[in-house]
Design a protein around this nucleic acid. Structure first.
Lengths: 243, 243
DNA sequence: AGAACAAGAATTATCGATAATCGATGGAAC
DNA sequence: GTTCCATCGATTATCGATAATTCTTGTTCT
């Protein structure tokens, strides 16, 4: 009787608020380090404080904001060190996921991946940083979801979502030239080959390529990096001291 | 001026509720699959529903409960498959953490580890399942925290906490004989040797030893497994059907 | 009996208001 | 000038009440 209809279950208000904020963060309308005040958000989005609050807790779980007890909650701002740490763990798991996915992916899946790689390519050519990152996320999510391990998929998701967010603002802040060596195409080719070693190698190269510039720079926090020379919005962010 | 006093910041009500529930889950007073009703908990713990609600969200983040939109929230009950998935990811990361920690651990740290290994040993001998698991957690946390990667530590924590919880109820349910081949002592010895391969090997052996019985059994969910033959509390739990 | 439907009970989601906490500011005491 | 203290505005934490949803049960109609 079921004709492939997904069960409809409208999002809760809190989830909607959460998504709206997530988009704002990815789009850079909320900058790393910026404070999110519950009542302000509640008023401007026309919901109650508790709803916003719950959304913020969700965002904290995703890693996009940091809540400080009795103080405030701010958009996550990574130190270089933390980006490195995340990338290290990510690489290990991403390799695992890609190797597993290579076994499971059908011809259609591979075609879908190439579609995404193509979309990424086009976004890069026209300098659309936002769409670039969105498609990039989807590309990787496809791999994760076909790894056959839900745990692996969600772990990677948690680990990576904030990285993507900051990669996004990072790119647009420095007007990075996105046209690189078609890393996604290369990756798909590697997966097609079903050669585990080759896949692992491409994964590493791919990830390192995306973050290399930041990791080899000297700025301590990502928002300082993004702000470098371009903007200095209003004295917030990145001003807390290193000991 | 500072004489090593930690900054005092009393836990929020929600956090207290969260901890209380966590303990109850670890102690088995809340069984896998059991439903947690917000208002009931609020009344019995004398806080408001919202506070309980927030605590439940926190617990969900840790992975100890599952919240279903507009329905209910239940204590997490893993399928065998999910336990396997978690263990697989865990092993990869735990190896990484142990290898890194081996470089950083001081003589004092190693002594602390041996203290914990000893405590585990004693708990095993007197059949104290609860303390066994608590010390086991601490043991591993020490390793994670000395890995030098906060990301690695929190990822492992998220991944593993629910496993420990269910290991705990599992053990006490089946009155497992805890006296095994002193895996923690072996692990400490391996770390002392600073031999990466040996460390990785012991880590794998250690983890597989803890879960081997469950992974090779036939029951589908952990609570069915725990309930097998011993109790059948009151018809709840594990009754939702496989398709 | 079985399907369709209609209350009714139970539970979660959301709200608006109050309490607790924090950080800044400014003045008094030394 | 610096330390201490009091106060105030802003923000988060918690509460109690209401709205919306889901689940259950009972009834009617076939």
């Amino acid at each position: 009787m079921n004709a492939g209809l997904a069960p409809v279950r409208p999002e809760s208000l809190a989830a909607q608020v959460c998504n709206a904020l997530k988009d704002a963060i990815f789009a850079g309308r909320l900058q790393p380090g910026e404070a999110l005040r519950e009542l302000h958000l509640a008023r401007s989005m026309d919901v109650s404080q508790s709803t916003v609050r719950e959304a913020l807790v969700q965002l904290e779980r995703i890693g996009l904001v940091v809540r400080e007890q009795n103080r405030r909650t701010t958009v996550t701002s990574f130190t270089k060190r933390e980006v490195r740490e995340r990338l290290e763990v990510r690489m290990a798991l991403e390799e695992m996921a890609a190797a597993k996915a290579a076994v499971n992916l059908t011809r259609e899946d591979l075609a879908a991946l190439e579609g995404l790689a193509d979309r990424i390519e086009r976004a890069a050519n026209r300098g659309d940083h936002f769409d670039y990152v969105q498609a990039d996320i989807r590309f990787h999510r496809v791999l994760w979801q076909h790894s056959g391990s839900a745990v692996l998929a969600t772990t990677l998701d948690q680990l990576t979502t904030p990285l993507f967010a900051f990669l996004s603002v990072l790119h647009s802040a420095e007007l990075k030239d996105l046209r690189t060596a078609k890393p996604h195409e290369r990756l798909v080719a590697a997966i097609r080959s079903r050669n585990e070693q080759r896949i692992r190698k491409e994964i590493r190269a791919h990830i390192q390529g995306s973050y290399g510039r930041f990791l080899s720079s000297d700025e301590e926090t990502l928002d300082e990096f993004a702000a470098g020379g371009i903007r200095n919005v209003n004295g917030r962010g990145g001003s807390r001291k290193r000991r």
